[in-house]
Simulated assay, not measured.
Amino acid sequence: MSVAALPLSKPSPVSTFLELTKLRISGASTFTAAAGYVAFLRGADAGLITTLIGILLLAMGSSALNEVQERRYDAMMPRTAGRPIPHGDISAGRAALVAVILAVSGFLVLLTAHNLTSALLGALALGWYNGFYTPLKRLSAFAVVPGSLIGALPPAIGWTAAGGSVAHPSVLALAFVFFIWQVPHFWLLVGLHAEGYEKAGFPTLVSVFGRARLSRLTFTWTCGTAAACGLLPIFRVLVSWPAEIMLGLGAAWLIAGSLPLLKEGQDAPLYRRVFMNINLFALVLTAAVILDPFFSR
C-alpha cells in the first residue's frame, strides 16, 4: 500500500477538544483578564486563580459555540476547513453540549467565587460574541467595530472579580485600549485571508475599499492603538517608570513595524508579520500592566 493510500489517523479527543475550544485564543483573552485583576488589587492573591479559571471556561465555551454556529462557513474556507466539526471529528450536537457545559461552569465559578457583576460581564461577553458579533459578520464588513467590545470585556471582568467597579475610569481606560487593539488585529486577518472569507460569503473591507486602502486604514487604527496606551499612565493604571517605558517602547516598535502597510504591493507575508507584531504588542501591554505593581514597590 502506498503512503498516499494510507487512511488518515483520527485526531485524539484531547486535540479535538483543544481545537474546538480554541485554547490559544481563549488563553490570550484570559491573560488580559489577569491584567484587570492585578491592576485593581495592585498585586495578586488566590482569587486570581478562580478568576482565570472562570474566564477561561467561558471563553472556551464561547469559542466552541462559535464553531457550531459557523460550521457550514468554516467548511468553505481553507483556513478553517480542518476544524473539528467540518472535518467530522465531532458532531455539532456534541460540540454544542460541550460549549454549554463550559460556559455555564465558567459563569458559576465567577458567581460563586467572586461576584454577580463579574459573572454578568462574562455572560455579556459570550452573548455579544455569539449572539451579536457572529451573525453581524455575515451582514457587514464593519462588524468588528462594535464586535470589538469582546476585547474590552476580559480586563473589566478581572477588575470586577477583584472587587472593583466597572465604572471606574482606570478600568475604562484599560478596556478602551483593548477595544481599539481588536480592530486592526482583525483587519490584518482579513487582509491575510480575504479570499477565503469572501468565498464563504463574508463581506470584507478588501471588497469595499481594496487592499491598499484597507492597509492604510489598518495602519491608522494601529497608530490609534499605540496612542490610546497613553491613557494608562493618565488614569493611573500604570504608575511605575519601568512599565511605562516598556509600554512606550512596545508602542513605538508596533508603529515602526506597521509602516510597510503604507507602501504599495502588500502581500501575505507582510500581513502575517504585522499580525504577529500586533499580537506580541498585546502581550507586552498585558505584561506591563501586570508587572507595574511589582515595579512600583
Rank of each mutant, 00 (worst) to 15 (best):
L139K: 02
R216H: 11
V190Y: 04
A212F: 04
T134I: 12
L149V: 04
L65P: 01
R42V: 08
T222L: 13
L254D: 01
L8Y: 05
V144L: 08
L57G: 02
G151Y: 15
V109S: 05
F281H: 12
G191E: 12
L97I: 10
G163T: 06
E198F: 15
L285V: 07
L124F: 13
A156E: 03
R71N: 04
L285G: 00
G36W: 09
A212G: 03
A282D: 00
P135K: 08
A200N: 03
L283I: 15
G147M: 13
Y129L: 14
L270V: 13
A35T: 04
A113E: 14
F40W: 07
N130V: 09
T117V: 15
L136Q: 01
T286G: 14
P135L: 13
S207G: 01
A156Y: 10
V190H: 09
R138E: 06
V98Y: 03
A175G: 01
G250T: 06
P203W: 09
F17R: 02
R42A: 12
V208N: 05
A96T: 01
F295Q: 03
L41S: 09
L48R: 04
L189N: 07
P7L: 11
R138G: 03
M1L: 11
L291I: 05
L238F: 05
A200S: 01
A161W: 15
R297E: 15
I278Y: 04
L205Y: 14
H87W: 07
A33P: 00
G191C: 03
Y37F: 15
I157L: 11
K22C: 03
S63H: 14
A99F: 07
Y271M: 15
L270C: 07
R213Q: 13
T134M: 12
N66D: 00
Y129C: 02
M246N: 09
Y271I: 10
A46S: 14
A28G: 03
P146I: 15
G147D: 06
T80E: 14
A243F: 10
V190M: 11
C229Q: 14
T218I: 07
L238K: 05
S63L: 10
L8G: 00
V3Q: 11
P86E: 08
Q266L: 10
G131C: 05
M276S: 03
A103W: 13
H168F: 08
P11F: 02
A200I: 06
S15R: 13
P86F: 05
S9K: 11
V3A: 12
H87V: 01
T51M: 13
L6K: 11
L247W: 06
D89N: 06
I278N: 13
F176T: 05
S62W: 12
S165T: 01
S91M: 10
T134H: 12
M246I: 06
L217G: 08
Q266K: 13
V100D: 00
S63M: 14
S215F: 13
E198G: 00
N279V: 11
T220E: 08
I55W: 00
A92N: 03
T225C: 12
V144F: 02
A288W: 08
G257T: 04
L65N: 00
S26V: 09
L18Q: 08
G158W: 13
